[in-house]
Simulated assay, not measured.
Amino acid sequence: MSTGAVPRPRVAIFTDETGWHTRRLQRALARRGFEGRCVDLAQCRFETGVPGHGLVIPGFGRDLPVAAMVRGIAGGSLEQITKRLGILHALRELGVPVYNDARAIERSVDKSMTSFLLQKAGVDSPPAWALEDEAQARRILMREASAGRSLVLKPMFGSQGKGLMRVGMVDGVSVPLPDPGRHGGLIYLQRFVPQARVPGFDWRVLVMGGQAVAAMRRVSEHWVRNVAQGARCVPCGLEPGIADLARRAARALDMDYAGVDLVPDPAVPAGAQVIEVNGVAAWRGLQKVTPFDIAQALVDDLLERRLGMGKLRAESSQAG
Rank of each mutant, 00 (worst) to 15 (best):
M1A: 15
V6C: 02
P7G: 05
R8D: 12
P9D: 13
V11G: 10
I13E: 13
G19H: 03
T22Q: 03
T22L: 05
L25P: 00
Q26A: 14
Q26N: 04
R27H: 09
L29W: 06
R31E: 12
G33D: 06
G33H: 07
F34V: 06
E35Y: 00
G36H: 04
V39S: 09
V39A: 11
L41E: 10
E47Q: 13
G54V: 05
L55T: 04
V56A: 13
I57R: 03
G61S: 05
L64V: 07
L64T: 07
L64N: 04
P65K: 10
A67I: 05
A74W: 01
G75A: 15
G75K: 02
L78M: 11
R84Q: 15
G86N: 06
A90W: 07
L91T: 07
L91S: 04
V98L: 07
N100H: 12
D101C: 10
A104R: 03
K111I: 10
F116E: 11
K120F: 14
K120T: 15
D124N: 01
P126D: 10
L131R: 09
L131Y: 11
D133P: 01
E134M: 00
A137R: 04
M142A: 12
M142V: 10
M142C: 02
S146C: 06
G148K: 00
S150L: 08
L151G: 03
G158R: 02
K162E: 14
M165T: 01
V170N: 07
P180H: 02
G181Q: 10
G181C: 05
G185Q: 09
I187A: 08
Y188T: 01
L189Y: 05
Q190M: 09
Q190A: 10
R191C: 13
P194E: 09
A196M: 12
R197S: 15
R197D: 15
G210M: 12
Q211A: 15
A212V: 05
R218I: 13
R218K: 13
W223R: 03
V227I: 14
A231N: 08
A231L: 12
L238F: 02
L238K: 00
L238D: 09
L238E: 11
P240G: 08
I242R: 01
A243I: 02
L245T: 04
R248C: 11
A252M: 05
D254N: 12
M255I: 09
A258V: 11
V260G: 03
L262V: 04
V263S: 03
A267V: 00
P269S: 06
G271R: 00
G271M: 05
A272F: 02
R284H: 12
L286H: 04
K288W: 01
K288V: 14
P291A: 08
P291C: 06
F292L: 07
A295M: 04
A295D: 08
L302Q: 10
E304M: 11
E304N: 09
R305A: 15
L307H: 10
G308Q: 04
G310N: 08
K311N: 11
E315L: 06
